[in-house]
């Protein structure tokens, strides 16, 4: 039978779920802190101490910066929080540049496992507006990937910041039906940007086909 090495089958490797047991393999200590000040992101409570082999937290940004916290609960189609989900983010730096375009040292990639209460949390910097090579300007935003048990492929969404005037003219938000745009807007509450993710059902988060 044809297999991975068969020329006639050559093409995209299919996506599969991360399953429920990824915690000792993927989310590292500090992975959810994009400035490297804390060790949030991992779930070392889910494995014996000598089987935590992933990276230890370390500072990634040496300059003092103004940080923000982003937090939310991920819930399923019955509104039940999901304790076995992993959230990844990708974002520009405060000047709107992605890593590789700037030498700020900011990488802009983060990974957070959800807690038993289904909550993820990132500490990062607020991205600036992003100017594409064709001059198109995007409002400050953060790209999200959601992966978990029961998810055969990642779900992709974006976080935008409530109250930013640039949201009105953002070319991607403009593609989202008006009634659903609010699911992409994080709200500031007690100093934290709150951004819940609803996988299915009432107020289902808008997910993108990229």
């Amino acid at each position: 039978m044809a297999d991975n090495q068969s020329n006639e089958l050559f093409g995209q490797t299919p996506s599969q779920t991360v399953g429920p047991f990824f915690h000792y393999g993927l989310p590292w200590k500090g992975g959810a802190d994009l400035v490297g000040a804390t060790d949030i992101g991992a779930r070392p409570d889910l494995m014996p101490e000598d089987h935590y082999l992933l990276a230890q937290s370390h500072a990634t940004v040496t300059e003092p910066v103004e940080t923000i916290t982003i937090e939310g609960v991920v819930v399923d189609g019955q509104g039940v929080p999901t304790p076995d989900v992993m959230v990844e983010i990708w974002q520009a730096d405060p000047t709107g540049r992605y890593a590789g375009e700037s030498n700020s040292g900011f990488i802009g990639f983060g990974r957070s496992s959800t807690s038993e209460a289904g909550v993820y949390r990132f500490v990062t910097v607020k991205p600036g507006a992003v100017t594409d090579s064709d001059g198109m300007i995007q409002a400050p935003h953060i790209a999200f990937s959601i992966l978990g048990r029961g998810m055969l492929k990642r779900l992709v969404t974006r976080l935008y910041f409530d109250g930013d005037v640039a949201n009105e003219s953002d070319p991607i938000l403009g593609l989202v039906p008006h009634a659903r745009r609010d699911t992409l807007i994080a709200k500031a509450r007690d100093g934290v940007w709150r951004f819940d993710i609803v996988l299915q059902g009432v107020r289902e988060t808008v997910f993108f086909d990229i």
Partner: peptide, 28 residues
Amino acid sequence: YASTLLRSPRQPLVRIPQTLTETTGPRD
């Protein structure tokens, strides 16, 4: 695969063009 029943979106995905956000990625 039963766990997909409550963890898959019911609304259609919104198709978007690939911007700088989608065509860049982490290094280091």
